[in-house]
């Protein structure tokens, strides 16, 4: 035979498995551990006073350090949201459900969270919500410690109060 087979090998399976050992960094470590103690931490910009949650070491906007850590209230506003109508593998929530940006009172940026204990159709931009935590003893110090936010029944916040905190 003066040449290799015409019938070629078409594919090679290359199953890469790369080991990593990620470090959270001190600020994120404090944030996550504080969730276990039912606390939500943020950090305050030394130049503008803006509060970031989860805490960052420096403001992405002013580039000034955010040395002060603060404890945020567990209540806030739905700033923007979406209604999920497609099931996600591994997520046991009845559809449709709401994923929202929640600006905690006093925070200048928002967190992402589920909104539950209400119909999806009842969530609005401006809906006042509060955190629902896992019970004492079950919190692990991770994002699932806040199970979700639920409406408080307070009047909606005016648009102007959250438009810059989406």
């Amino acid at each position: 035979m003066s040449e290799p087979p015409k019938e070629r090998v078409k594919y090679i399976d290359t199953n890469l498995n790369l080991p990593y050992h990620y470090y959270a960094g001190d600020y994120k470590a404090l944030y996550l551990r504080a969730l276990r103690d039912k606390k939500i931490l943020g950090s305050r910009c030394s130049k503008t006073g803006k509060v970031f949650v989860p805490p960052v070491i420096a403001s992405p906007e002013s580039l000034a350090p955010c040395d002060e850590l603060v404890e945020l209230p567990h209540r806030g506003i739905v700033t923007t949201f979406c209604v999920v109508n497609v099931p996600v593998i591994g997520r046991e929530i009845e559809i449709p459900y709401v994923v929202a940006s929640v600006a905690l009172d006093g925070a200048d940026v928002s967190l992402y969270s589920l909104i539950q204990e209400c119909a999806a159709a009842d969530v609005r931009m401006g809906t006042r919500v509060e955190a629902v935590w896992k019970p004492d003893g079950e919190r692990q110090g991770d994002h699932t410690d806040i199970r979700y936010f639920r409406p408080t029944g307070e009047p909606d916040a005016p648009f102007e109060s959250f438009i810059h905190r989406l």
């Binding site: 090679i12 290359t14 890469l16 790369l18 080991p19 990593y20 050992h21 990620y22 470090y23």
Partner: peptide, 18 residues
């Protein structure tokens, strides 16, 4: 963050794959 991964595994991927 070199320490977080395995440089040996990572730099292998810089090579021609087959």
């Amino acid at each position: 963050k070199t320490s977080e991964g395995s440089p040996a595994h990572v730099l292998n991927l810089q090579l021609e794959p087959f």
